[in-house]
């Protein structure tokens, strides 16, 4: 029951936002929050629940975006047909890369995924006959479904947040299932998990593939929202930003991903006012949040609330 209330609340919020906000800038920022939430959610499954770090996840985001761009522009496919192919492409790459990479652990896993992310980014840049190279890929069509055009920011907002809701539901079901329990076992101790009969390698790979698929979905949505993509968007910096969203929001927390993505999307928008000081303030905020709320915003806020209630 509780979950249903929560979901209804979520849908209501999105609907209200879409209905009452007419300024396309705010709608666009909200849409970007949605896309970033998808990214954070996918990575959180990997980092928070399976305990595996990835410093190259922007590669899957990019694969999703470039796959749909190439298919819709060079091959004139319908975007809706390109979507499953884009996700499948990311999933396949994740599988191939995941088999050897996920055998690494700790910082070495970070290094392995980082190297992979760099290679993919260089491919985006150098394969210019297909990807448009460093100047970027122009002319990606806007989405439309029958009579509904998603070129309106309102409709796009609903589309993106619809996807977010679907992914949240999916993730929650996985977490509450047998697989989720096995994942948490891996997080707490991989060898112990293996000892009680969890096929750790297979599970890690499955989660890696799942998170790659979600990142690709986000990439698809990004490409058709902005109608332009270039390699910088999917660089190493983006991978780090994704990890930051997960950790700031709170590891192993679905709503934490939402919170982390919101904060990291909104922060640069607020900090415009600081102009030259923007970087300094941004860095300080990251540091301060982590110093005082090392478990992330979700846990941190809950702790503060609980403490204040106890003291009342």
């Amino acid at each position: 029951m509780r979950v249903q209330i929560l979901y209804s609340f979520f849908i209501l919020m999105v609907a209200l936002a879409g209905h009452f906000i007419s300024n396309a800038y705010y709608l666009q920022v909200l849409t970007f929050i949605g896309i970033n939430t998808l990214l954070a959610l996918g990575l959180n499954m990997l980092m928070g629940y399976a305990g595996q770090i990835s410093l190259g996840h922007a590669a899957f985001y990019g694969i999703g975006a470039y796959a749909t761009a190439i298919l819709t522009v060079h091959f004139s496919w319908s975007p809706w047909l390109a979507l499953p192919v884009a996700i499948a492409a990311a999933v396949m790459v994740a599988y191939i890369v995941g088999v050897p990479t996920l055998k690494l652990s700790g910082y070495y896993l970070g290094m392995g995924t980082l190297g992979f992310g760099m290679i993919i980014n260089i491919i985006f840049r150098e394969w210019s006959s297909v990807t448009g190279g460093a100047s970027g890929f122009v002319g990606i069509p806007a989405l439309s479904l029958g009579p509904v055009s998603f070129s309106s920011r309102q409709n796009y907002l609903y589309l993106v947040w619809g996807c977010v809701l679907l992914c949240i539901v999916l993730c929650r079901r996985i977490i509450d299932s047998r697989v989720g329990r096995a994942l948490r076992a891996i997080h707490d101790g991989e060898k112990a998990a293996a000892a009680v009969g969890v096929d750790t390698q297979k599970l890690k790979l499955q989660v890696f593939v799942l998170s790659a698929g979600m990142s690709a979905l986000a990439g698809f949505l990004y490409a058709h929202l902005v109608c332009f993509i270039s390699p910088e968007t999917f660089s190493f910096i983006m991978s780090i930003r994704m990890v930051t969203m997960v950790v700031i929001g709170g590891m192993a927390s679905i709503w934490g991903s939402l919170l982390g993505a919101s904060l990291l999307t909104l922060l640069p928008e607020w900090l415009h006012a600081f102009s030259e000081f923007e970087m300094v303030v941004y860095g300080l905020i990251l540091m301060i949040v982590m110093i005082f709320l090392p478990k992330g915003l979700t846990r941190g806020i809950l702790d503060i609330v609980e403490r204040s209630r106890r003291s009342l």
Partner: peptide
Amino acid sequence: RTVRFPEPIVLIIITVGASIFLRGIGML
């Protein structure tokens, strides 16, 4: 040192934050 639960990932994000902060200082 001020971090209360110094887990590696938390410290990593702090150093990432510090890198942005120091880059900003360098620019100013």
